[in-house]
């Protein structure tokens, strides 16, 4: 059975640990992976794609050594293999210009400032993962306990 992954990319290990901890509630129906750089994330993306698995959500730090989170998400956005993958940018340094660039070029779905509120992060991740499942046309039922109920109801209603 194909797995659906959540990938977190953050260069600072302690922060990565915290993000992973906060997203642990999705583990089970979803699979969780952490990466310490954009390069590592890209390798992992290739690998998961080769296995036929899905990437439902990418949670990215903004400023990282080497390739930045925005650039990584821009590249993912251009990549047809991950057309439905949802993108969440975590940032401690949100200037207006970066925000505009990120939203326009990387089609970022959510923008969350550091330090983040765990409930907001979880809620947004929930919504994005729910949208991913419906957009990708996967069966939502096994994931139902960790999905955003409102989004599920709206998507199901639309089917008539």
């Amino acid at each position: 059975m194909e797995k659906t992954y959540i990938i977190c990319v953050e260069d600072q290990r302690e922060v990565l640990n915290t993000v992973l901890k906060d997203l642990e509630i999705f583990e089970g129906p979803f699979f969780l992976e952490g990466c310490e750089s954009a390069d590592e994330a890209e390798e992992l993306l290739d690998e998961l794609d080769a296995q036929g698995d899905y990437v439902g959500l990418m949670v990215c730090d903004h400023v990282m050594p080497g390739k930045s989170g925005v650039q990584l998400l821009i590249d993912v956005n251009k990549d047809g293999r991950f057309r439905h993958t949802k993108k969440l940018l975590l940032t401690g340094l949100a200037t207006h210009q970066d925000t505009i660039e990120a939203i326009n070029q990387a089609a970022i779905d959510r923008y969350i400032e550091k330090p983040w509120n765990v409930e907001i992060l979880q809620k947004q991740a929930r919504i994005l993962l729910t949208r991913f499942l419906f957009d990708q046309g996967l069966n939502y039922e096994p994931f139902l306990p960790v999905l955003d109920k409102e989004t599920v109801l709206e998507r199901l209603r639309r089917m008539g």
Binding site: E150, V152, L153, L156, R157, M159
Partner: peptide, 16 residues
């Protein structure tokens, strides 16, 4: 007239 699932989804959303 609608599917049972879609109807439930709509009404649960109204109820939420």
């Amino acid at each position: 007239f609608m599917s049972n699932t879609a109807t439930t989804a709509m009404m649960l959303a109204v109820l939420a």
